Computed example of a mutant assay.
Amino acid sequence: MLNHGGKLRAASVRYQIPLSDWVDLSTGVNPHCYPIPEIPLVSWNRLPEDDDGLIEAATVYYGCNSILPVAGSQAAIQSLPVIRRRLFPDSNTVAIPAIGYREHFHAWSQQGYEILTYEDEPTEAQLHQADVVVIINPNNPTGHLIDPEKLLMWHNQLSKRQAWLVIDEAFMDCSPEHSLTDKVPCSGLILLRSIGKFFGLAGIRLGFVLAEKSVLTCLQEHLGPWTINGPSRFIAQQSLKDEIWQQQNMTRLKTSGNRLLKLLQEHFSKVYGTPMFATVFTDRACVLHELLCKQGIFTRLLDDESGIRFGLPRNTDDWHRLASGLQRTC
């Protein structure tokens, strides 16, 4: 099992600081989640049904009618290597970002694929060699964003030899103009979207796969029935329909993201940000992470210990504590 942000209880025990006294910046999840409406009793009492309106709501939100709900994009990340091998038995090579959400690397390597790593973007040689190219757009944790025209050019190149372009758009909601959702269905193009990040609903474990029907059918058969529970389906449906909240949330996240970026730039030279998180690259990452933890400020130390990712503070007190903590630490 890989390590991820969000393990606040373990940090509380280690540093002997009560849970209520922490500023938790360890995830990129929106700290102001969608307000949960009253959940109908039927959502608890009946088995989930595919025709409950969730897919229709997602179709409107993403502008795509070839879509499958899954138990978080993590479920798709773990399953796609199996599906690829089933559909294309000779597949062997996958290009994946060297710095990025590590579950992609883990899932493909677990299925025996040869992994080619790249920095911000795959090389021409890798685009010619790989059977699957995985893009995280924008990248988590670097924030690197790839232009859609370039992605479409890569897809056209890959599709000619039945190679896949898999794009993880978990943090794309604040930059819809960079999304390729309106290009699906298209042969060999697979997009992953998440309800957890933008809507702040990580706990309901729901995401979507956008792809051609043959891929979705194979994926659905692999995952089996009732992968999303009834209450989660209801909550997600309401959030996807609430355009007023979405616009207000977009404005709030962009304002907070810019504020976080400026705050970190006062102390660090290498800072990369998105509306939902910012990452600092420094050779003092381990030391800084430890010092902040001792002040009850929980950040995400990158897997290779080259930097620290900061999520958004929840309220005024959290912003003040982060500013003061950075002042003392840096």
Rank of each mutant, 00 (worst) to 15 (best):
L2V: 05
S12I: 03
Y15S: 09
Q16S: 15
P18V: 09
D24A: 07
G28L: 01
G28S: 13
P31M: 07
H32Q: 13
H32Y: 11
W44D: 10
N45M: 15
L47H: 11
L47C: 06
E56T: 11
E56K: 14
Y61M: 10
S66A: 15
L68H: 07
S73C: 12
I77W: 01
I77R: 06
L87G: 12
A98L: 11
I99R: 06
Q111S: 08
Q111F: 03
Y113K: 00
D120T: 12
D120M: 12
V134S: 08
V134A: 13
T142Q: 02
P148T: 07
W154M: 09
H155Q: 14
N156P: 05
W164D: 12
A170G: 13
M172Y: 05
P176A: 05
S179V: 04
K183P: 03
P185T: 06
I195D: 00
G200M: 04
G200S: 03
G207L: 04
V209E: 03
L210P: 07
E212G: 05
V215S: 04
E221R: 13
Q237D: 06
K241E: 13
E243M: 08
E243L: 12
Q246K: 13
Q246C: 10
K254G: 02
R259I: 01
L264E: 04
E266M: 12
F268C: 06
Y272E: 11
P275A: 00
M276Q: 11
C286E: 13
E290M: 10
L292Y: 00
I297P: 00
R300I: 04
D303W: 05
S306T: 15
I308P: 00
L312G: 04
T316E: 15
D317N: 14
D318S: 13
S324M: 08
L326T: 02
